[in-house]
Nucleic acid binder design. Structure first.
Length: 476
RNA sequence: GGUGGGUUGGCCGAGAGGCGAGGCAACGGACUGCAAAUCCGUGUACACGGGUUCAAAUCCCGUACCCACCUCCA
């Protein structure tokens, strides 16, 4: 079996062949750090984290670069509104994003470059484009530099659009552009409206980089002029990725061999960025759900499928995931995260993952395996080998329960608390056992109800009653 | 106007010419004092209208509705 991936450029699922045997260079467009991350933002982080994990399990040496855009119009505008320096806002939101990723067990990339740290690299690239005749300084003295779309014959190839079919941008006042579709590589400093801290020296005067150029410059710096996979959200296809590819190739770089794009999470049928959002920021969702549960919900859907977010659907996912956890608890297997080998995984799971990261099918295999394990348990047989396979699959998906990433709080304190509760519950369970022995079921059930009201569920098993915490968030 | 995607059972969500992914919910059975958990069983779904085919949810044509991108966007 070989790994096959959907390539946006060719619009088909094709065999993945790395440029260099055994190695993969992966670049993913991260976020513009301008507001608290919501569920939608974090999807691409989770999706590409799964890709990265799968590539590693498949034996590739992966160099994974995910950038952050820490300077742009929106950041400047918001910072101004909030009356603080733009870099202060960008930095705070960057930390917020890091927390969100950590809470979802999204592994840090090999390196996470920020736009503002790579201005010289961008200037160099722009200079090369000017020299080659694919870019020009604006003729209106604004200090802007534009990419000359007409000078690049294959412009539009990634998204299969012809220049003449494209709607010109509404804000496409001439501004010294040769064609309204020309895009800014460099934006001259607007002395009267923008802080000096948001400008850098360049051959065309002080200014700041345009949006698209940062990714071309940073991908080139860390992955080389040709690399394997470039990823990001659907909406980045055009203009961002189209422009990245055009400017990189116009500069003589082969650029990405595969393009991967994740689909949307919508709410009320709308793109999240357009709607409400507050209840769907990661910190807000994590007040009600565990990170591992949210991640399971995200992983259970295919990365190229639209997901219509709802708390009902999330609740269902939680129920499904708890079934898996309950099996592992019963099987008494904990294991350690981060040590999966291909041989540990069921064939069907591997086949599903190889087929363009078919996580839905992979999750189906997970559940099938859990059922096998439960059957063994029901027969009193040893389920440990099956549980090991379940753990291996969870590990690949970044859902290993024993992963320290889920630890979070003060574990020692939690352990002491658990022990304390255990003693208290044990006392009540003894009373209940006595009542049951005396066939006083009213008293026995009353005790069970009291515990239930306190959030503790009792199950009678062949080896005696056991207690567990109820789901923190019912389906009220 | 251009480009791309979607419409699947009560719900979520896969699949992509023949054998009903998986989950949740529901119902029946086993187990239980009753539950819970678990196991076993129960579903003839693919927007609509045509067509191709021995066979279509899957291919073709048309229609409707929805969404995204073409402006910053995961």
């Amino acid at each position: 079996m070989t790994l096959r991936l959907h390539d946006t450029a060719s619009r088909e699922v094709r065999d993945f062949v790395p440029l260099q045997e055994g190695k993969v260079g992966l670049y993913v467009c991260g976020l513009t750090v301008q507001s608290e991350p919501h569920v939608g933002h974090v999807r691409s982080g989770v999706n590409f984290d799964v890709l990265q994990r799968w590539l590693r399990v498949r034996g590739y040496d992966v160099t994974f670069i995910r950038n952050t855009t820490d300077i742009d119009d929106k950041i400047l505008a918001k910072a101004e509104e909030q009356g603080r320096p733009w870099y202060n806002l960008a930095y705070e939101m960057h930390r917020e994003l890091d927390r969100a990723y950590a809470a979802l067990n999204v592994a840090p990339p090999t390196y996470e470059p920020a736009a503002t740290g790579h201005v010289p690299e961008m200037v160099e690239l722009i200079e090369a484009l000017v020299e080659r005749g694919h870019a020009y300084p604006a003729e209106d003295g604004s200090g802007d530099v534009y990419f000359d779309v007409r000078s690049w014959p294959t412009y539009g190839e990634l998204t299969r659009q012809r220049i003449d079919d494209m709607e010109a941008a509404e804000d496409a006042d001439p501004r010294g552009k040769r064609d309204p579709r020309d895009f800014a590589l460099w934006k001259g400093w607007k002395v009267d409206r923008e802080p000096a801290t948001a400008s850098w020296p360049s051959p065309w005067g002080r200014g700041r980089p345009g949006w698209h150029i940062e990714c071309s410059a940073m991908a080139g710096k860390y992955l080389g002029t040709a690399f394997d996979i470039h990823g990001g959200g659907m909406d980045l296809r055009f203009p961002h990725h189209e422009n990245e590819q055009a400017q990189s190739r116009a500069a003589g770089h082969p650029f990405a061999a595969y393009w991967m794009h994740n689909a949307w999470i919508t709410t009320a049928g709308e793109k999240m960025s357009k709607s409400l959002g507050n209840s769907l920021t990661i910190p807000a969702v994590l007040e009600r759900y565990r990170g591992i549960e949210l991640r399971y919900y995200l992983v259970a859907a295919h990365y190229r499928s639209h997901v219509e977010f709802s708390f009902d659907a999330l609740d269902e996912a939680v129920t499904g995931f708890r079934r898996v956890e309950a099996f592992l608890e019963r099987a008494g297997v904990a294991g350690e995260a981060g040590s999966v080998v291909l041989a540990d995984l069921p064939e069907a799971f591997v086949a599903a993952m190889d087929d363009d990261l078919g996580t839905p099918a992979a999750v189906a295999v997970l559940h099938d395996t859990v059922r096998d394990g439960n059957r063994l348990l029901a027969d009193g047989a040893d389920a440990a080998p099956v549980a090991a396979r379940v753990l291996a699959m969870l590990d690949v998906l970044g859902l290993h329960p024993a992963d320290p990433a889920w630890g979070g709080g003060d574990e020692a304190a939690t352990t002491r608390l658990t022990e304390a509760v255990d003693v208290l519950v044990a006392g009540l369970l003894e009373e209940r056992a006595a009542a049951r022995a005396a066939k006083d079921f009213a008293t026995a059930d009353g005790l069970r109800d009291r515990l239930k009201a306190a959030g503790i569920e009792i199950e009678d098993t062949p080896s005696g009653p056991r207690w567990s915490l109820a789901q923190a968030h019912g389906k009220d």
